[in-house]
Write a protein that binds this DNA or RNA. Structure first.
Lengths: 159, 159
DNA sequence: CAGAGATTGCTGCGTCGCGCAGCGATTGGA
DNA sequence: TCCAATCGCTGCGCGACGCAGCAATCTCTG
């Protein structure tokens, strides 16, 4: 079905996205390995820094896709490494707030900044209109991935 | 540093990319879980179908970032599940060619196609020029991720 | 105000993916 | 011909993860 220019563009973008995402997975693994962590840990730290405030263990479990028990072990590792601290919630004493440690995260940020220079150069290759187009696509793709993930989770497994 | 429109666009795209990539990781996990596989297995199948021909175990190890031993176990799982077949290489009898099984992969493709409909709709929201802009950015981002991954791998660990 | 049910986080237990080290088989170069 | 290099496979141990059950706490109801 690649006989029209439009369809060809679709295929090219699909393939480019696949390669990009595959490369990101490898990069994420390499980054985690470089820091002596696991890909899941890096993902969690990314979520923590992107969040406006502290997250509970339950929220971390939902956002990472693993059980509360595994999330507890995950926070254990991060706390042992000094990346986060546990704080009991005053409003609801069942909850435990997980707060990232800025000093410790600075080391992670250092790696990111070092690599972020090339990222800035990449962004500078685009006009402002192009940046908006790409950003819009990213947001739509994010929403789509999120919706399809939930769809997959709430569907009977063929196994 | 978000005091200029340009810098604000940079930050927005950066954040949108982070969210997009994080969502993809979750989606990939959900997809693997849905198929009764592991994220690594799905990644490997994606690489196999994207490759022009059969891959050796060594190539799979390099492209997935794990050791040859783990790659052997990975191919074991895929072979046991009927997703791939092992074929001895005639030119070099040390090598083992791993070929995907079309019939078995059709089941994976079925999930993709079902979800790909929404993906096509997303692509149809863009003009052809916008598609080209996004594709170009994806390719550049892929190259950047790939280069930075190799840079991270060949650097001393701070641990 | 008291008690039932729901929610949150933590802990044994078993499973299994993964890296590491070493092995035999095969290939290509001195 | 011999030897180093390459490829894939196999024990071994580590550790991340899901599962099931637990105590503590909150919330809703009579």
């Amino acid at each position: 079905m690649t006989d029209t220019p439009r369809a060809r563009l679709h295929d090219e973008l699909s393939m480019a996205s696949r390669r990009y995402l595959a490369a990101y997975v490898l990069f994420n693994q390499a980054l985690a390995d470089h820091l002596g962590l696991h890909p899941t840990d890096v993902q969690c730290l990314s979520l923590l820094t992107a969040a406006p405030g502290p997250l509970t263990v339950k929220q971390i479990a939902e956002m990472t896709g693993l059980t509360t028990g595994s999330a507890t072990r995950l926070v254990d590792r991060l706390e042992r490494g000094g990346y986060v601290v546990r704080t009991p919630d005053q409003q609801d004493r069942r909850r435990v707030l997980v707060t990232p440690v800025p000093d410790r995260l600075a080391r992670v940020a250092a790696v990111w900044d070092d690599l972020g220079e090339a990222w800035e150069e990449l962004l500078d290759e685009h006009t402002e209109e192009e940046l908006e187009v790409i950003t819009r696509h990213m947001r739509r793709a994010h929403d789509l991935s999120h919706a399809q993930m939930q769809r997959l989770r709430s569907r009977p497994k063929p196994a």
